[in-house]
């Protein structure tokens, strides 16, 4: 009896000292506060990027070239350049990325996986150096849309192929066997069964890749973009202006007088990102 009482008293005392329920609540609340603070910081970054620039949007902003040393005019050449570069690089990278993703998933080649992993880690500015050396100088493309698009394509190639690899790899083995059991060859199983069934994720990653390509700055400074182009591009070998490089040049070498144009450009870029990613996520959700 006596012993019993002692025991229970002691255990309540110990429990009070570090009540596990309280302790659990405390850590939960602390973590939640941290998470919400950062989520709020990120949201304010979005707002600061999007909102202040919107008021400079008008027809001229989207249809005129910059003038008077960036104090007036608009961003039309940069907008056009970004769209051209993005579309061209994706046109190269998507088919190639799908093929490479297939190789990663359906052929058990360790060294190809290794190569793609290495590619995915190479800094974008190094891709820029390579593009500068190979495309612009050795192959004589100079600073041009084509050189930039090829460089970007190479950069997003590992992004696309890894994602194709992951979805294709997740398709159950039984499904492949069922196709083989009908007498299909390997290439038929791949192109007529597996590829159609990862269509949706190919769409998703294409948009993700578009988001990547449209915001890349460093490789384009080295291979495709000029600070100011007097004419619109006339061929694939013309240099271009692009949104991110325009923003970079404005921030790096212009002061107050061009601030408005930089803000307007930032808003356009962030809007692009939001739209492109929202589409990508929508495709992904439908799949579920």
């Amino acid at each position: 009896m006596n012993e019993n009482t002692n025991f229970s008293q002691e255990s309540t005392k110990r429990a009070r000292k570090s009540n596990p329920v309280n302790k659990g609540m405390r850590s939960k609340v602390t973590l939640r506060v941290i998470t919400y603070i950062f989520a709020a910081l990120i949201l304010s970054l979005f707002l600061l990027a999007l909102v202040p620039g919107i008021r400079y949007w008008n027809l001229d902003f989207f249809t005129q070239a910059p003038s008077n040393g960036m104090t007036s005019g608009g961003i039309f050449p940069a907008l056009l350049g970004s769209i051209l570069l993005t579309l061209l690089s994706l046109a190269i990278a998507i088919p190639l990325g799908i093929l490479l993703g297939i190789v990663l998933s359906e052929y058990n080649l360790e060294y190809i996986r290794f190569v793609v992993t290495i590619l995915s880690g190479i800094p974008s500015v190094v891709y820029g150096l390579f593009g500068l050396g190979l495309f612009c100088i050795t192959l004589g493309m100079r600073t041009s849309i084509l050189a930039g698009a090829l460089t970007l394509a190479l950069m997003v190639l590992p992004v696309i192929s890894s994602s194709v690899y992951e979805t294709m790899h997740a398709i159950p083995r039984e499904l492949r066997e069922a196709a083989y059991a009908l007498g299909a060859r390997k290439s038929e199983v791949i192109f007529e069964m597996l590829v159609p069934s990862v269509k949706r994720s190919i769409l998703t990653v294409s948009f993700v890749a578009a988001g990547r390509a449209i915001g890349e700055t460093a490789p384009l400074i080295l291979t495709a973009a000029v600070f100011y182009a007097t004419n619109l591009p006339t061929s694939l070998l013309s240099p271009v202006m692009t949104l991110p490089t325009h923003l970079y040049f404005l921030s790096a070498s212009y002061g107050e007088s061009a601030r408005w144009m930089a803000q307007g450009t930032t808003s356009v870029l962030i809007l692009f990102v939001i739209v492109v990613y929202t589409i990508a996520f929508a495709f992904r959700r439908e799949k579920k």
């Binding site: 039984e174 499904l175 066997e177 069922a178 196709a179 083989y180 009908l182 007498g183 159609p196 069934s197």
Partner: peptide
């Protein structure tokens, strides 16, 4: 490949291909 066409197979778990009903059969 032609052997497998002459000897068909049905598996333990259903293995519909991720396409329409029609295309599943048209595939073969």
């Amino acid at each position: 490949y032609s052997l497998r066409r002459r000897i068909g197979m049905v598996f333990q778990r259903p293995t519909p291909f991720p396409m329409s009903i029609f295309d599943n059969i048209a595939y073969g």
